[in-house]
Amino acid sequence: MTATPRVLTGHGTENDFVVLPDPDGSVWPGDRLDAAMVRRLCDRRGGLGGDGVLRLVRSEHVPDAAAVLGADLQACEWFMDHRNADGSFAEMCGNGIRLFLHALVAEGLLDRSACADGVLVGTRGGPRRVGAAADGGYWVDMGPAREFGRGTAQLDGRTFDGLAVSMGNPHLAALTDVDVDTLDLTAAPSFDEELFPDGVNVELVNVLEPGEHVRLRVFERGVGETRSCGTGACAAAYAALAVEGRREGTVIVDVPGGRLSVQVGPRTTVLTGPAVLVSAGSLCREWLGD
């Protein structure tokens, strides 16, 4: 391992990440990037700060890539090795994967002009196609939204009914008339653990224009409240359409960190939004303890 590993920071609608370039898997081999290291990197006082870590690495250097990608392994040159801020592995992140592609382009590992039709990227939620949009942002084929029941979350002294939606990771999208800006999301909501045995991301959603425009706040499992959540935006858009009796359409989703667009179709869901790199540098030997 190099004594001073390169590191980037960036965000997608202020859902922020520490990005670790490691194309050949030599910078963070084995368990070097363990849960404790992830927590240190994401610490907003003692580290760089972030909602998670994204390692830029080729799929062939990720031990569990074959198991999660199966027959698509060879088609996915790159793998988004994504960890939540608490060190746990994450299946998928719509904001993170846009930043992942943007970082690959910025690092000279991919040509942006070759990304217009999309590049297949491996994730622990399966392969995802992500591409460069004409406006400078990025789009992601998030796969189909899969409804798997209804549940409730208890938060801020209230009970919220919601739709259980899988976007490769579990969500409870709760449409509510309570102004989401008034809610206290500093404590984790309680939820039905039988319906969500692996935890759940909870979206509190205000409908601004039925089936067209929503505003949300989200409490992400393993992280806490974040400024944005791409998969959560998709789940919220799906729920906003479903309550209108619709299974397809385009919904504008406002999050605390900006605006996203979600196109829901019968076979897949496409998320579009910005990705921004904030800084680039290296981790110091003093901090690493090497």
Rank of each mutant, 00 (worst) to 15 (best):
residue 5 P to I: 03
residue 8 L to S: 03
residue 8 L to E: 02
residue 9 T to Q: 11
residue 12 G to W: 13
residue 13 T to K: 03
residue 16 D to L: 10
residue 22 D to R: 05
residue 25 G to V: 15
residue 27 V to Q: 01
residue 27 V to W: 01
residue 29 P to T: 05
residue 31 D to V: 04
residue 34 D to I: 07
residue 35 A to Q: 11
residue 35 A to D: 14
residue 36 A to V: 06
residue 38 V to E: 04
residue 39 R to C: 00
residue 41 L to M: 08
residue 43 D to R: 01
residue 46 G to W: 15
residue 47 G to W: 13
residue 49 G to Y: 12
residue 50 G to Y: 09
residue 52 G to E: 01
residue 53 V to D: 05
residue 61 H to Q: 04
residue 62 V to M: 02
residue 65 A to P: 09
residue 70 G to H: 07
residue 78 W to F: 03
residue 78 W to A: 00
residue 79 F to I: 09
residue 80 M to W: 08
residue 82 H to I: 02
residue 83 R to A: 12
residue 83 R to F: 15
residue 83 R to E: 01
residue 84 N to Q: 07
residue 91 E to M: 13
residue 93 C to K: 06
residue 96 G to V: 01
residue 99 L to H: 09
residue 105 V to C: 13
residue 105 V to I: 15
residue 106 A to E: 15
residue 107 E to I: 01
residue 108 G to F: 13
residue 108 G to W: 14
residue 109 L to H: 08
residue 110 L to K: 04
residue 111 D to M: 03
residue 112 R to Y: 08
residue 118 G to W: 11
residue 118 G to S: 02
residue 124 R to M: 11
residue 125 G to I: 04
residue 127 P to S: 09
residue 128 R to N: 02
residue 129 R to N: 10
residue 131 G to I: 14
residue 134 A to Y: 12
residue 138 Y to N: 02
residue 141 D to P: 02
residue 150 R to F: 13
residue 152 T to N: 11
residue 163 L to Y: 03
residue 166 S to C: 03
residue 169 N to V: 14
residue 169 N to C: 05
residue 170 P to T: 02
residue 172 L to E: 08
residue 173 A to R: 12
residue 173 A to G: 12
residue 175 L to C: 06
residue 177 D to Q: 12
residue 180 V to L: 06
residue 181 D to A: 13
residue 181 D to T: 12
residue 183 L to S: 10
residue 184 D to M: 01
residue 187 A to M: 12
residue 187 A to F: 05
residue 188 A to V: 00
residue 194 E to H: 15
residue 197 P to V: 06
residue 200 V to S: 07
residue 204 L to S: 00
residue 211 G to V: 13
residue 215 R to F: 06
residue 217 R to N: 12
residue 218 V to L: 11
residue 218 V to H: 09
residue 220 E to M: 07
residue 221 R to H: 03
residue 222 G to I: 06
residue 223 V to R: 00
residue 223 V to D: 07
residue 231 T to N: 11
residue 231 T to L: 04
residue 231 T to R: 08
residue 233 A to E: 04
residue 235 A to E: 06
residue 239 A to H: 12
residue 239 A to P: 12
residue 240 A to E: 03
residue 242 A to K: 14
residue 242 A to P: 00
residue 243 V to T: 10
residue 245 G to Y: 11
residue 249 G to D: 02
residue 250 T to C: 06
residue 251 V to Q: 07
residue 256 P to F: 09
residue 257 G to C: 08
residue 257 G to T: 10
residue 260 L to E: 10
residue 262 V to S: 05
residue 265 G to M: 01
residue 268 T to N: 14
residue 269 T to R: 00
residue 270 V to E: 00
residue 273 G to Y: 14
residue 273 G to S: 10
residue 275 A to P: 05
residue 276 V to N: 10
residue 276 V to M: 13
residue 278 V to T: 15
residue 281 G to S: 10
residue 283 L to W: 10
residue 289 G to L: 06
